[in-house]
Design a protein around this nucleic acid. Structure first.
Lengths: 160, 160
DNA sequence: GTCCAAGTACTCGGATATCGCCTGTCCGAGTCGTCATGG
DNA sequence: CCATGACGACTCGGACAGGCGATATCCGAGTACTTGGAC
């Protein structure tokens, strides 16, 4: 069970977009160059964020990606769901239905003790991620390393 | 990010083994027949449980699998780790190292705010699963449907 | 009747294919800036 | 000097390959039971 690496890229890119906000849209190529990522593939991930309403995109020169809303209104869970999809990690196949106690018309996702346990754990995971906004992440980074925003903006300017 | 279906099979099989405990070892073929699962593939998953010390196995006629310890000493997390492996779902690639603020000698798994957030969430997930023993699951099932143990044992006898 | 030994059926365990998803790349449609040209 | 139109460069977006892990299967090694025969 492994999470796609696009999640990490997307989260970092969102913070970068916030720091570069005043300078207008940022292309996928520049965002990729910052961390030495494959540009076309990062583009693909950012497209998912656009579909999820987290970013907006514009084509042509001076085009690129831009935050669709304030960082305070974006949770880590939003980004994870945008990249990984909304489905749960544990998918109950309801194999109990085939067992000796199986009955039709019973929703084993709700009644199977195993399924309930897995769902509860996953809910705890989702709750942690949903409780954390990107604004909090940004503030945490800036508190630990106040020079970060400037450093990233300078690097973006170099890539101009 | 999807969990292998072997996890569900393994958990149900452990409960079945507990109910059939007095009747001796149970072969992978019988355990698979209960839920209409591919026998050879279920066997592969059970092998992982053996390697993890959750089950013991014996070959030959009257052979099969058996619980290595009491259900109260097996957590759901144990089974998940045995099937899925011990590595975390989120793997920090430390892409910050390539950025303008990157430094050698820094462990970004510990210092990156994003990595810390993901790890915290995953820890909450693991904690939920580790807090739940298979004995609790068994008791929950038996409370909701007291006929289950007998039904499974009868089915196992039929498959003799 | 009892003991023994060979044969047989059954089981796990690992080696071997197949499939789908994650990863990665490429090209086309659209857009904006630029520059030459004419008034 | 200014307006205008065509050109060109740049960007996203989706269509198109490659690789790796999950899924599924098969066969060999080992074991315990069975069965036949000898004593």
């Amino acid at each position: 069970m492994q999470m796609g690496e696009g999640v990490e890229w997307a989260l970092h890119s969102c913070l970068n977009l916030a720091w570069a906000e005043a300078d207008g849209a940022v292309s996928a190529a520049k965002l990729a160059a910052i961390f030495d990522l494959p540009p076309a593939y990062l583009n693909k991930q950012l497209q998912a964020l656009v579909r999820a309403g987290i970013l907006t995109s514009s084509s042509g020169p001076r085009g690129g990606f831009r935050l669709a809303r304030d960082l305070a209104d974006i949770t880590v869970m939003d980004v994870v769901a945008a990249i990984e999809g909304p489905q749960e990690a544990f998918r109950c196949q309801e194999i109990l239905r085939n067992g000796p106690t199986g009955r039709d018309g019973v929703d084993y996702r709700e009644h199977c003790a195993i399924s309930k346990t897995m769902r509860r754990a996953e809910l705890a995971w989702r709750r942690e991620l949903a409780a954390r906004t990107l604004a909090e992440l940004r503030d945490e980074v800036e508190a630990a390393s106040p020079g970060s925003p400037g450093a990233y903006r300078r690097r973006f300017a170099e890539l101009k």
